[in-house]
Design a protein around this nucleic acid. Sequence first.
DNA 1: CACGAAATAT
DNA 2: CATATTTCGT
Length: 635
Amino acid sequence: MEFGSTEDGRHDKFPVGMRVLAVDDNPTCLRKLEELLLRCKYHVTKTMESRKALEMLRENSNMFDLVISDVEMPDTDGFKLLEIGLEMDLPVIMLSAHSDYDSVMKGIIHGACDYLVKPVGLKELQNIWHHVVKKNIKSYAKLLPPSESDSVPSASRKRKDKVNDSGDEDDSDREEDDGEGSEQDGDESGTRKKPRVVWSQELHQKFVSAVQQLGLDKAVPKKILDLMSIEGLTRENVASHLQKYRLYLKKIDEGQQQNMTPDAFGTRDSSYFQMAQLDGLRDFTAARQIPSSGLLSRSHLTKLQPPMYSSINLQGMNSSSFIQQGHHQNSSNSANPFGTYHSTLSPRIQNVNLFQRTSSPLEPLQFPRSKSYIGDFKGLGDRAIGGSFLDTCMPFGSSSTSLPSASTNPLMLQANYTQPLHIASDGIQPCIEGTPSNSASPNISFQGLSRFPGHSWQGNLNTTRFPPSSLPLNLAFLPDQVTCAGNNLGDCTSLVSAENPGGEMQCDPQLLGGFMQNVNPLGGQKWEQQNCTMLNNPFGNIEYPLPADNMVFRDNNSTRSKGLDESLMNPIDNSQEYVGKATTMLDPEMKSGKPENDNQHDVFDDIMNEMMKQEENNGMVPVATRFGFDSFPPP
DNA sequence: CACGAAATAT
DNA sequence: CATATTTCGT
C-alpha cells in the first residue's frame, strides 16, 4: 500500500513501482501480462502457480499493492486467490478469457475490483492503479492534502466531458472522473455528497429496536444513532428516517381511530405498512392500545421478514467494490458486469438490492430456481433473467465462498446515481415453477423474492393491509411476499403465521434485530473485520450471523412495485386453513429432500430449517420473553 | 447544537 | 412517485 513513492513525484508518477502480483497458469499469457505491466512501470511479481501466489500473499500481504489473477487455473482457482486477496484488503483484478455474463458477474460478485477480459490491453492495465488508490483512500488522502481533487468548493469543476478527445478515442476507462459527484470514494474528508443510505430491513429493524429501547418519546435521532451504532450512519440519516417513521405511526393511528378498515387494500400506504411489520413493538412502546385481535388471523400472513442481512448501505463507500463499480459503463476490455447486465436484460430491470421489486407484469423469463443461483453462480445463466436474481444477491454476497467484501459493508450506499445495476425485477419468480398460473401473476413473482431478505419495508407490497397494530408481535417467518401470493403461496405462508398469540416461535424481525444487538457484542465493531461466514446463503441470512451492521447499497432504480395489486386476489381467509395446507405441502418436500426443483417449498423448508437452527444455536430467546423486557417499558 | 418540519434532490 | 438528503426555523 503505501505508495511511498508517491510522495516524490507528482501524482503522475505514483503508480510507478506499484507492486503487482500477476498470476496466470498460461505462460504465454503471463508473459504478455508481465510485459504490459512492466510497460506501465509497475513492479511485477509473476507466477504461474496460484498456490504459490497464495503463499506469497499469506506470507506477506504487504508485498503487493494489487493482485491480478487469471480465473481459470488448475489447482487453486482464481477465486480462492481473490478471496485471500480480499482478506488482506488488496484489490484483486480477475482476468479471464470469458466475457460472458456469468463469468464477469461471478468475479465481481466475489469482490473483484475489476474484471478484465483477455486479451488485456495496455490501456486497461494503465488504470489499474486506481483500484489501489481506492482501497486506500484514507491513507492516501493524508498524503496529499491539498490536492486539487478535493477542493471543489463550488463553482468550477469545469470538466464535464473530460478526457475524451485526448488521444485516440478509445473508450475505455472507466472510472473516476466524473465530475461531480460520483466518485464514490466514500467518505473522505471532503464534503462530498452524502451517500444515500438505504434503509434496508435490517437497518430499519435496528432503528426500531433503538426507538423501542429509548421509548418512543425519548427517541431522538442522536440517541437512536448511538444505539444503532452503525458505522457510517449519520444523525441526519436517522433523523430523516425518524421523521418518516413518525409520519408512518401517525398515519397508522389515524387509521385506527378512524376506523380504517383493514381490508382496504390500499396500495398507497403500503410503505407504511411495511414499516409496521417491522415495528411490531411499537404499539407497546407507544402505549397505544390496539384493537388487536381477532383479525390477526388474516393479517398474520402478511408478513415476515427475515432479518437477514444486517446492514445498511451507503453508497459510494469504500469498501465494497460492488457498489463502486457503479460507474463503469463500458469499457473496451474490462467487461463491465453491470454493463453487461444491462444489455442483457433489458427492459425492466431493477435493482433488487433492496429488494424492492417492480411490478413488472410479466416477464419473459422467469427463472426457475432460485437456489441454484445463490449457491453457485454457475447457474446463472445465460439467460437474462438470471441476472435478476443475482442482483439480488449480490450485495450481500451470495456465493458459496465467502465474499468478504460484499458482506463486509455495513451500510449500503448507493453506488452511483447514475447507472447502477439493475436488476431485473422480473426475474424473480422462481419459486413457483409449476404453476401454470394463469398469469404470471405478480404474486408469483413476489414469491421468488421472498426469499430474500431484503425487501425494504418501504418497497414491499402488502397484501392486505392491516392495521399494524394488530400485529404486534407476530412475526412472520416468511417473507411477506409470500403472503401475497394468493394461492399457492398462501399455503406456505400460513405456516408461519404467527397468529398464535402464544407466541411460540415467532421471530419478529425486530426482535431479532434487537436480539442480535444485545447479544452480539460485536455489534459495534467494524464490519470490515467481520467475515461473512454465512451470509452467503440467502437463507443464511436468517441466521443472522453477523452483527448486523452491514449496509447495502442501492442502485438506482426505479420503480417499485407497488402496483401489483396486491394482489392478491385471493386474500387469504383464515389462517388456520392455510396452515393446514402449508403443512401438508411442506412435508412432502421435506422428505423428498431437495431435489432440484426448488420451488417455494424448498425455500420454505430452508427457511424453516434455518430458523430452527437459529433458535437452537442462538438459543433464541423467547421472543416473547425478550419482548417482555424491553418492550414493555411502561412509559 | 439538536430537533423537527418542510423543501429539494435523486 | 417514493424515499432520502438538505435546508431552515426554533
